[in-house]
Amino acid sequence: MASLRSIAEFQRVHGALLARLHSQASTAGHFLAAPRFAEAMYRSALSHFTGAAAPANPGHASDGAVAQFLESLHVADLSLATACADGVPEAWDFFVAEFRPALYTASRALAGDAGPELADSLYADLFGLEVREGRRRSLFDYFHGRSKLSTWLRSVLAQRQIDRLRAASRTVSLDAAGDSPQEAPSAEASAARTALATSATSPSADPDRPRYLASLQAALAEAIKSLPPKDRLRLSSYYLQDLTLAQIGKILGEHEATVSRKLDRTRRDIRSAVERQLRENRRLSDAQIQLCFEYAQEEWPFDLTRALS
């Protein structure tokens, strides 16, 4: 991490690379002088290798790793964001022309009629209305060029909208917020609670119904836990976030046909794993396993219109 000790050392070690990237970044406009551009790059590298995200980066911060990191940055967007944070008028003109419409489009998609208000609040923070220690603080300072600027803006908007929704939900009674993740219990506890509730209200006369449901829930939890992360994320996006196949594909970098195929395959795998577990660990017969699924269908009806859309 020798090159990150100081900005001077950083420029000395990576001077040639910085010059090339600065030239590359200038294709969108000469918004930043080379020294300021080097500072922005240094800030990004420092954030990546020593900041909060550092634990996620197991690689050693050698000079080569730093150079590789610098190469991976969206330098044109980083240059534009830094220039906007510095208040360069040309950069703001470019930003307004290129990004502002998309910003308002995204905010309207997220917040509907409140979209313009959401975008305006973000716009104000991007402009840097807040002054700390005599310096105007712009939200652009938090952009490190690791993604496209447009994606980062959407991410920030999404974060703000989530925060707004959560803040609004705090004013709602806890009963109404029963679906909030804060109260998500463990799978076993949930299954047991469901079984108890079911036994009290179910019209079925089968005394084994609560046991079947609890067994099924436990087996499902095991099967989900054993899934690869990507499959689990795909399933959650589909079943819990109500995303379309195309939107899931955008998250995971897959074509929507691939998403559909893999969802189907994962669900078949889960079913076979659950059946195997119920048969081998719980010693249930095929008829009892069938009964488990029938009780589950009664207990947790799935929105078929959602699945068929």
Partner: peptide
């Protein structure tokens, strides 16, 4: 999910 929705609308 929110990022994906913001992009797709």
């Amino acid at each position: 999910a929110f990022i994906a929705r913001a992009e797709a609308e």
